Amino acid sequence: MSTTAPESLKMQLTYVETRSGEFKAQGVPYKAIRYLSSNTREIRYSHETHRALDGEMMMLPRTGIEPPRRIVTGHTPDGKSTTIFDGEVSSAPNVGTRFWVTKGWPTDNSGDNKDLRDESPDRAGIFQTNGTNFLAQDVPPGAVVPMHRTSTLDYGILISGELTLVLEDGPPLTLSEPGTVFVQRGTAHQWENRGPDWVRVIFVILDAKPFAYTNADGAQVTLEEYHSWSKAPT
Score class of each variant (00 low, 15 high):
186 G>K: 00
179 G>F: 12
71 I>L: 13
73 T>Y: 00
42 E>T: 10
185 R>F: 02
227 H>C: 07
182 F>E: 08
140 P>V: 06
166 V>L: 09
197 D>A: 08
168 E>D: 15
229 W>Y: 14
188 A>H: 05
179 G>S: 07
98 R>C: 07
42 E>P: 04
77 P>G: 01
51 R>I: 09
133 N>L: 05
9 L>A: 02
106 P>F: 01
212 A>H: 12
41 R>E: 06
210 P>W: 09
188 A>T: 12
118 D>M: 07
202 I>W: 04
56 E>V: 15
144 V>C: 03
154 D>S: 05
59 M>H: 10
115 D>I: 10
49 T>C: 03
213 Y>R: 06
162 E>K: 14
30 Y>P: 13
161 G>E: 14
100 W>S: 00
140 P>Y: 07
214 T>G: 00
172 P>Y: 11
197 D>H: 13
233 P>I: 10
155 Y>G: 06
4 T>I: 07
87 G>P: 15
2 S>V: 11
66 E>Y: 03
143 A>C: 06
130 N>F: 02
204 V>H: 04
222 T>R: 01
124 A>P: 12
134 F>T: 00
190 Q>L: 10
197 D>Y: 05
26 Q>K: 06
166 V>H: 14
65 I>H: 05
196 P>E: 15
67 P>W: 03
42 E>C: 03
50 H>I: 08
175 L>Q: 07
38 S>C: 04
170 G>T: 06
180 T>E: 12
72 V>K: 01
41 R>M: 05
6 P>N: 03
114 K>M: 06
55 G>R: 05
18 T>Y: 10
149 R>G: 11
182 F>W: 13
209 K>D: 06
99 F>Y: 11
119 E>Y: 11
189 H>C: 03
142 G>D: 13
226 Y>I: 11
216 A>L: 10
127 F>E: 13
183 V>S: 02
100 W>M: 00
72 V>P: 05
11 M>N: 09
15 Y>L: 05
107 T>R: 00
58 M>W: 05
232 A>Y: 13
24 K>R: 06
60 L>F: 11
209 K>R: 10
122 D>K: 01
119 E>I: 12
23 F>P: 11
203 F>A: 02
47 H>S: 06
145 V>F: 15
7 E>Q: 09
69 R>A: 01
71 I>W: 03
197 D>N: 13
111 G>M: 08
228 S>N: 13
61 P>G: 00
74 G>T: 05
193 N>W: 05
181 V>P: 12
132 T>N: 09
161 G>D: 15
93 P>V: 04
34 R>V: 12
16 V>D: 04
75 H>S: 03
229 W>K: 04
61 P>M: 01
189 H>R: 07
1 M>T: 12
222 T>E: 12
115 D>S: 07
8 S>I: 10
234 T>M: 13
28 V>I: 15
234 T>C: 05
198 W>Y: 08
46 S>T: 12
25 A>P: 12
92 A>T: 13
30 Y>L: 15
1 M>I: 12
154 D>R: 02
91 S>R: 06
163 L>D: 10
172 P>S: 01
131 G>K: 00
2 S>G: 09
103 K>A: 00
130 N>L: 04
192 E>G: 02
203 F>K: 03
114 K>S: 06
134 F>C: 00
36 L>W: 02
47 H>P: 08
162 E>A: 14
43 I>L: 07
68 P>E: 07
32 A>R: 07
52 A>Y: 02
12 Q>T: 09
162 E>P: 13
